[in-house]
Amino acid sequence: MDRPNARPPGDPCDEARVILEARGVTKCYHLGEVEVHALRGVDLSVCEGQMLSLMGPSGSGKSTLMHIIGLLDRPTEGSVIVEAEEVSSMAPNDLAAVRNRWVGFVFQSFNLLSRTTALANVELPLVYAGVSGAQRSKRAREALERVGLGDRLGHLPNQLSGGQQQRVAIARALVTEPSIVLADEPTGNLDSASGVEVMGILQELNTQGITVVLVTHDDTVARHAERIVRIHDGLIVSDEPVAERLSAAELREAVVDMAGRPDA
């Protein structure tokens, strides 16, 4: 898993290393009489181990695209290929199984189960993966340790800060050892220090080999990735490598210097 990130950022990956591909994806909603075209033919390849930002203003279709590549939604037309397997025509229950083992989600509003401990929240995907109890809690504990919350296992979401809640959500996304983590505005509800913290974790996971797709409208957040795909009105308008990639680790030091305290 500890693969050196030797590939130059933005370098188009060769066929073998494409783990996710969208081909001619359109999405059309019917709101009463009106047809809304959220996506109007999107082609996108995500390479293994890449950290990619999907950028666009609200209403551009970036969230719709994330739902489709995260297998939460199905395209009206076009296909989604995950590790050389066509998934867009799968039955909902099969899709749920692929989603469980292949994707981890991180949402803007954390989406943790309230009244449920951090550990139980992280265990949740394993419950649906059919992992036995003892194994489940061991893996969930490891995932929480990985995001630096090894001492908060029994805390409920409302006993944790926003940044900590988002780290629990990241641990939940990681626990099934997915190929890809999809993060939808992961710093949107966080103060800047916590935001930097979360971005640092995502970057660190990426260096450990996990593919990360960030959905954001914030240019600074987007520049933590190595590649930025911009969407506008349901079409990809640009796809380019990041020239000066931001490092959360360095930013954190800057924040610490400014605020004079280490953690939010």
Partner: peptide, 16 residues
């Protein structure tokens, strides 16, 4: 509803 959404997002099937 939200809890159901979360469960589905992390891989719960209809049956679950």
């Amino acid at each position: 509803t939200r809890e159901i959404g979360i469960r589905k997002a992390v891989g719960a099937r209809t049956y679950d």
